[in-house]
Amino acid sequence: MRLVVHQLGAEQRMFWRSREAAIFIFIFPLLLYSLLSSVYSQDITVNGAKVASADFLLAGLFGYGAANTAFAGLAIILVGRRETGTLKRLRATPLPPATYIVAVILSTLVVFAIQAVALLVLGSALFGASMPANVLGFAGAIVLGVVCFAGMGIGAAALIRSADGASAVVNVVLLPMAFLSGSFGPRTDLPRFLKAVADVLPLTYFLDIVNGVYLHGESLFSDLRAVAIVAAWGVAGVVVALRRFSWMPNE
């Protein structure tokens, strides 16, 4: 436990000290939200119900932010640390691997929780966005999203071979996923085959959950199927990681 706190402190220091991480992981979703909300100002119709675009996009950017921070960000950080020999080096210290991974995920959670609050403040101050209808459920969704996307991020890190390509690979996955899942606009207009793709993506279901707790005040577990699918993706990432993750650089 002492080591988890110690490593969490170290991770936070490293994250905020790195300008690239702070800009691409923390600032970028805020920027994207401001841009999209400036462009779309009319109400958006989802399943026959009208939703203010500021609220719709805020929910969308929560989802994008969770995937960006925990999936893309974590994968890039871990691949970088593996290829520079940092992970190998850690492996020779008494720090237990599980403690390290838990601290890294907690650190990601801290970053995304701050980002979620920043999005809410930004949204309500500039675009009149609502506060979460179910605050507790919203907090729960943040934890669920970070943990599951972190599982996928660690799985992706296990599959990515070089640090050079890591950023490109995760963004090739992340950006289309965000579009298809409806982070940046409603997915009702998607052609049939793209909708079929969207129907298996974890972000699609995570956005359903966020919409439920944020806009409609539903319980986190009101759509158990969505929770199960998001969790299944997280577990799949962990399974890949357990089988393939290496602490040693690729020679």
């Binding site: 490293m14 000290r17 020999g85 940092t86 190998k88 080096r89 020779a92 008494p94 650089p249």
Partner: peptide
């Protein structure tokens, strides 16, 4: 692991 120290052939520690 408490009792060994390791200097790797190639490593590039966190630089920030």
């Amino acid at each position: 692991r408490e009792r060994i120290g390791v200097v790797l052939q190639q490593s590039e520690l966190v630089s920030n």
